[in-house]
Design a protein around this nucleic acid. Structure first.
Lengths: 209, 209
DNA sequence: AATTGATTGTAAATAGATTCACAAACAGGG
DNA sequence: CCCTGTTTGTGAATCTATTTACAATCAATT
């Protein structure tokens, strides 16, 4: 699939992996790396790394390899990570609260700026420093807070309805924690985070056959 | 990739999706479905569903479609889900506690049977009904508790060391929540659950280009 | 019992992704 | 300043996955 421009989706999906490995290398003081070495580190062929990067430009030097800090900058730019992204969390139950307080988003430039629920027992409460809004007011609040990404953490049975509302409100990127693969129009990007699905494909390989 | 037998890994990864959709259909009272209908529901071509299933046998009836309960049974069997799997959680911090208490595992046949940490302030505590063991005792306890799957929820900087220990203790399936893609031998299956990585590839498409 | 309409299972064709392989480019050393 | 040893970037080749297309099969209806 090539959804947007000419860059295959699998390629875009690998870039964050490269980014993460390079960050770690940078903080351990290394400043140049070859596709060979990076490939060993990530269990990927060197040719794949070079080809992936070649979709976006020519970042290496023959005979040397890649300057880590330069490549990091380029990857951040390509992925749109040289800006902060505002995130809304929908569903303030057990899971939603964990997401709101997850300390891994902030350092990567993702800021949870507001939270929503439909349960009147939860609306108005404070969770992780955020006041919980009524999901009925999503469009208005999200506009005011300049939200670009929604994280869905509602029960499976209401997930599709919530996602339909988000789409209607103009959301283009959704990270879905509900154990349900929901339908969205082609221009809305949705990613599912579902540990059970991951486990269920691993048991295939664990089972004697 | 075809890792194990002749079945491509992408195919195995789609089976849990089919399973989930079929479960929902079953509980809504439907009992036969065609590849056409299931495909619409999952945004997948009917041919792909039929081809995927054909790796494992012939489960449909021409002119009719698939019996949902029969197909569910077969898929559960193929994926090894007609048994209970015992899971250990490594790392009892904020994230580990959420995982231990996550109510989505139990109904799908995954039982968190023990938890480990290396921090002496946490070892011996009770979290989500489980006593936290010292990770140094992993091999012994995991054997006694008949653990088949490990979930890693430790900080990135110790993830590789923990995973090396798990591999040494004979673990063959790891679900890794640490924001670090770790190296394992070819016979050990590892899946990463990393919301930041998912967000980072979505921002590519959100960014104006 | 024959006809109709639907749907599977799969072989062959197409599309897509990965790997190979090598010319071009560069740094370091003599 | 010219070798030597590396490593990139990429066209071509290969490998993998998806889609097409249709014969075989089945239930329902006449």
């Amino acid at each position: 699939m090539t959804t947007n421009s000419g860059v295959p989706e699998v390629v875009v999906d690998r870039l964050p992996q490269y980014l993460r490995a390079l960050s770690q290398l940078e903080s351990s003081g290394i400043d140049v790396i070859s596709s060979q070495q990076l490939g060993e580190l990530l269990q990927v062929t060197p040719a794949q790394i070079r080809k992936d990067l070649s979709y976006f430009g020519r970042f290496g030097k023959q005979g040397r390899g890649y300057s880590i800090s330069h490549l990091l900058g380029r990857l951040r730019n390509i992925l749109g990570l040289d800006q902060t992204w505002n995130v809304a969390v929908i569903g303030v139950g057990r899971l939603g609260r964990s997401i709101i307080s997850y300390p891994g988003f902030q350092p990567e430039g993702f800021r949870v700026v507001c939270a929503f629920d439909s349960d009147s027992g939860v609306v108005g409460q404070v969770a992780g420093g955020l006041t919980v809004y009524d999901f009925a007011d999503y469009a208005e609040v999200a506009k005011r807070e300049n939200v670009q990404i929604a994280i869905v953490a509602v029960p499976a049975n209401v997930a599709q309805a919530v996602i339909d509302d988000l789409v209607a409100a103009g959301v283009k990127s959704i990270l879905n924690y509900a154990p349900k693969s929901a339908l969205t129009p082609a221009d809305v990007r949705i990613r599912n985070v579902d540990p059970v699905v991951s486990l269920q494909s691993m048991t295939y390989y664990l089972s004697a056959r």
